[in-house]
Design a protein around this nucleic acid. Structure first.
Length: 588
DNA sequence: GCCGTTTTCGGCCCGACTGTTTTCAGTCG
């Protein structure tokens, strides 16, 4: 079986770490990291790209790394890595994960104390052996022990849906301080990454003299378990729940450069700064500074302050780029040539095509969900409870499904046109690939979602065949949460997405971006690929409770990360267009 | 090791904070 993309990306990251410890020139190291990042976010299998002979089209992958990918795909191994691990212990990669330990210290510990992994590092620290090394003291040694402890506490990246409300609460507390003029959540939350490593908060003050009380309040909060750094303009804390939060404070006159800097991504920032240099400007979080031909800042020349992000991009000859696009995925080239997408917004959403009720495992009635959707501005919804095979979710038998239809029709009539309520199902794709309802029953429904919930660990060929069978059924309109991942714990199913996209294109069905923050499935890179291939998407809340109807924005943000424009999304369409689409698919 | 609106060779973003030092290297984002 082919090696998953993420395993190859992980290996490149390990190679980068080992090369850095060896003292290899940093740009060679960064090449491996950059390629790893690109590979993580690919919407296609490396094996398929290699078969097309287009590996070097991947950003950051040149001739050398393409050959290494081929070697990994063909042999499952990488000689270069094997050789590196004969020179250095592979466990040093873990040693570098400890906060405060970088390549130089990892090398020092290895050479002086034969530290080869976290276990031997901890032992050396406990025995007081680190403090004797050059540039090391008792404080550094104690911090390393704390860092090792923190590693074991870390549960990995946090779902966006957990991090965002927490960040919002922290920000609101800081904004309540009298010295705060403005504030924002920046970093990967602002870019709406599905998982969050740490929270980046930005506060603006009128004058930097106002920064100190805000900073003191930040590091002095009750939730703070440990202060990782504490300076006048920048502090970093770890909360009791394991979340790391960074705060930057800058003057309001520098808001634009500061927000752009703190939003990232790092690669996007690097591209912006390179672009600035090409225009004889040096860009940092404070300002744009004129430079000479060698890139040295001209101290006498006036700096350009930007109080908005628009001004930063404008100074670089570009239109403003939406945060969700700032991943160095071609957004600057698109901005340069004036072809940035007109990204979908929450206001474009007309309907919600995936909603559960008390008929299966929801907590509100059909009527309650309809009224709650109306309050949220939806023009129409589809009630899609689970089918009989979803026994844990109290799935509907054919008899109950038809009984439910009577109730849905009644509620639809009672809503009197204020919101239309359609009747559908979220039907199980069973483990053997068959569907849960016969065609003559499906034909009686307004809208049919088919979803994978069980046996998600089947081998690629088998699980892909299951999904393709559902896609080919003429009654199925939408595939719910196609990849089956649960954030952060469950990996997606091992699907051949090229085959899924080809089948979806052929049958004309839509693929879902499930807006539940525990799913966000399709992910952005797959949504982008789907749209490129001309496949329709739908963004649905999959709400099981009234409050979950508010999750729509997470799905919209995910779509925006995927460069998606409103016309590609089924539920931005007005009712008439939606109904016309259903008719074109042979529905009454 | 990658890459090209200066370049197929020679560049490759930039600053804050820490701990250990007497002026800065290492780490982080």
């Amino acid at each position: 079986m082919a090696i998953p993309n993420r395993d190859i990306a992980d290996l490149f990251d390990r190679v980068a770490d080992l090369l850095e410890i060896k003292g290899e020139i940093i740009h060679r190291v960064l090449s491996y990291r950059r390629a790893a990042e690109s590979i993580y976010d690919l919407p296609r299998d490396l094996a398929a790209i290699a078969a097309d002979g287009t590996l070097t089209d991947i950003p950051g992958v040149g001739k050398t790394l393409a050959e290494k990918i081929e070697e990994l795909l063909n042999t499952g191994k990488l000689q270069f890595y094997e050789k590196l691990t004969t020179e250095l212990p592979a466990g040093l990669v873990d040693v570098m994960r400890v906060n405060g330990v970088g390549p130089k210290k990892a090398k020092l510990f290895w050479e002086q104390l034969q530290v080869s992994d976290l276990t031997t590092l901890e032992a050396a620290a406990r025995e007081g052996k680190l403090r004797g090394l050059p540039k090391m003291g008792e404080k550094s040694e104690a911090n390393i022990l704390l860092g090792i402890e923190a590693l074991s506490r870390q549960t990995g990246r946090m779902p966006l849906g957990t991090a965002y409300p927490a960040a919002r609460a922290l920000l609101d507390a800081l904004l309540a301080l009298p010295q705060s003029v403005d504030g924002a959540i920046a970093g990967s939350i602002r870019r709406a990454r599905p998982t969050i490593g740490d929270v980046d908060l930005l506060i603006a003050v009128k004058d930097m003299a106002d920064a100190a009380p805000i900073m003191e309040a930040f590091v002095g909060q009750g939730q703070v378990a440990r202060i990782l750094g504490h300076g006048p303009t920048k502090s970093s804390v770890e909360l009791h729940n394991g979340l790391q939060v960074d705060l930057r404070i800058l003057e309001k006159t520098r808001w634009g450069t500061a927000l752009a800097y703190f939003t990232g991504s790092q690669q996007h920032n690097i591209r912006l700064r390179e672009r600035a240099l090409a225009r004889h400007l040096s860009l940092n979080e404070h300002a744009l500074s004129p430079t000479d031909d060698a890139g040295n800042i001209l101290e006498d020349a006036p700096k350009i302050l930007c109080d908005t992000e628009e001004k930063v991009y404008e100074a670089l000859g570009l239109p403003w780029v939406a945060p969700e696009l700032r991943e160095d995925g071609g957004e600057l080239e698109a901005a340069q040539t004036g072809v940035l997408p007109a990204l979908i917004t929450l206001a474009d959403i007309q309907s919600d095509l995936h909603i559960h009720t008390t008929w299966s495992d929801g907590t509100a009635s059909v009527r309650e969900m309809a009224e709650a959707a109306l309050v949220r501005g939806r023009k129409f919804i589809v009630i899609t409870d689970h089918s009989v095979g979803a026994t844990i979710a109290n799935g509907l038998s054919v008899e109950r499904l038809l009984a439910q239809q009577v109730e849905v029709r009644k509620v639809d009539a009672e809503m009197n046109g204020k919101i239309r309520v359609f009747h559908g199902t979220e039907m199980e794709i069973k483990a053997d690939g068959t569907l849960d309802f016969p065609d003559d029953i499906l034909a009686q429904l307004d809208f049919v979602i088919a979803s994978l919930h069980i046996s998600l660990r089947q081998p690629r060929e088998q699980i892909t065949a299951r999904l393709l069978n559902a896609i080919k059924n003429p009654h199925v309109d939408l595939i719910g949460h196609p990849r089956g991942q649960l954030i952060p714990d469950r990996e997606p199913a091992d699907l051949d997405m090229d085959a899924v996209f080809a089948a979806a294109k052929m049958s004309g069905i839509a693929l879902e971006i499930n807006a539940s923050p525990n799913r966000l499935d399709l992910e952005a890179q797959y949504a982008r690929r789907a749209v490129e291939l001309g496949i329709l998407l739908a963004i649905d809340t999959d709400a099981h409770h009234i409050e979950s109807l508010d999750n729509m924005h997470y799905g919209v943000s995910t779509a925006r990360r995927g460069w998606v424009e409103a016309p590609s999304v089924l539920n931005t369409w007005p009712l008439e267009k939606f109904e016309a689409w259903l008719r074109s698919r042979g529905k009454a």
